[in-house]
């Protein structure tokens, strides 16, 4: 199979994304060179496409995609893989704020750290962070799995509805209604397979599991403590 090589340095973002769409039609894998932290690379690709990006990317890389396989050797800016529907987006470096925001399916892997609000409002899929995450990660998470191999910043899982968070390191603080529960055998099996897929060496038993306490599901004057700041 031939590979399309695109040098970002001499192309506009518009041209790069159009070339990616064409490659998706032809099912040709693409390599992007010299991305130079450009914003909005490989966004809105909703047909299967393999993209290798050699270098750092800016905001919203792989945003609004479905069925893609994007690999970035480098760092990413804000909103990596936001609203991903399916497929796999993996970066070797660190991600800015809101990595995997509102993603609804697929797998996102960040080799390094992720910034604030990682996995915010996740609605599905798996988001795996090799390093640590910033404040307010998994805020209002709705579904899906967030795996954090390092530490978590303040307010982890605040107001989460559903979904599961696994943290290997230290948690600065849990958010409203986020509670630590025992891992099940099912969790361990899932974790081991997800970590193996991400190429991360860690044992499932090292992770704490956090889920919703469900006390914020419906307003209750009997739960004054939890509701005093939640509304």
């Amino acid at each position: 199979m031939t590979t399309t090589i695109i040098d970002c340095e001499v192309r506009t973002t518009r041209e790069i994304n159009l070339a990616l769409r064409e490659a998706a039609l032809e099912q040709t894998p693409v390599v992007l060179r010299n991305p130079d932290c450009r914003h909005n690379l490989a966004v809105g690709v909703t047909t299967p496409l393999s993209v290798q990006i050699d270098g750092h990317v800016g905001y919203y890389c792989g945003g609004l995609c479905d069925g893609v396989d994007i690999r970035v050797t480098g760092d990413a800016g804000w909103g990596l893989a936001e609203n991903l529907m399916g497929g796999r987006i993996a970066i070797t470096g660190s991600a800015g704020s809101a990595a995997g925001a509102t993603m609804r399916g697929g797998t996102v892997i960040v080799g390094g750290d992720a910034g604030a609000r990682c996995g915010i409002a996740m609605k599905g899929g798996a988001l795996i962070i090799g390093g640590s995450v910033g404040v307010l990660s998994a805020f209002m998470m709705q579904k899906g799995v967030l795996i954090i191999c390092g530490d978590a910043g303040e307010g982890l899982g605040d107001s989460l509805y559903e979904g599961k968070i696994y943290v290997r390191g230290k948690i600065d603080s849990l958010g409203s209604d986020a509670v630590i529960v025992e891992q099940t055998a099912e969790d361990a099996a899932m974790l081991e397979s997800a970590l193996a897929d991400a190429g991360i060496h860690a044992a499932a038993s090292e992770f704490q599991k956090i889920v919703s306490g469900k006390k914020l599901y419906n307003f209750s004057t009997k739960e004054k403590e939890i509701w005093k700041t939640a509304l």
Partner: peptide, 25 residues
């Protein structure tokens, strides 16, 4: 209870990038 802010952009400088994303998509 829906959030009051967008999850992946925070201010007008980010909004410009967000708009470009939606246009590209």
């Amino acid at each position: 209870r829906s959030p009051c802010r967008h999850p992946d952009w925070m201010g007008p400088e980010d909004l410009a990038i967000k708009i470009e994303e939606l246009r590209e998509a």
